[in-house]
């Protein structure tokens, strides 16, 4: 769904980066997509495959996606827990009210171009 429009935004950013650095071909793109970003990584990859293929700048480019974990803040004892999946309860005090922090980024990290 909105992964398509995010990838469209990515492609237009790649065009400005290529212009800025005098490059004509993108070889690889590396991204960090957090587990709480609301982005389905498979759909993002799928949208990238389809849209990058149609564009001479990005035709054949590879996409590498990493997912850094979110931090959960325990509302009971204040412990900070780093997990990709939300834990059921705080491992320290067993409280189950855990408030997420971060993990919602969709970051373009680096681009390899020639």
């Amino acid at each position: 769904m909105h992964e398509m429009s995010l990838v469209q935004g990515l492609l237009s950013q790649l065009h400005s980066l290529a212009r800025e650095h005098n490059k004509t071909k993108v070889i690889s793109v590396s991204m960090d997509i957090g587990p709480l970003s609301g982005v389905v990584i498979d759909s993002f990859q799928f949208a990238f495959d389809i849209l990058s293929d149609e564009d001479p700048l990005t035709h054949g480019a590879s996409l590498v996606i990493e997912s850094s974990p979110a931090t959960y803040h325990c509302c009971g004892c204040g412990a900070k827990i780093e997990e990709e999946e939300k834990p059921e309860a705080c491992p320290v005090c067993l409280e189950n009210l855990l408030s997420p922090e971060g993990g919602d980024d969709i970051i373009l990290r680096q681009v390899q171009m020639e």
């Binding site: 950013q13 980066l17 969709i106 990290r109 680096q110 681009v111 390899q112």
Partner: peptide, 17 residues
Amino acid sequence: HSHDPKIVEVHQSLLAA
């Protein structure tokens, strides 16, 4: 990270705009 001239470090959110 390398100083390969082919690699551009961006570190910007896709949602920045």
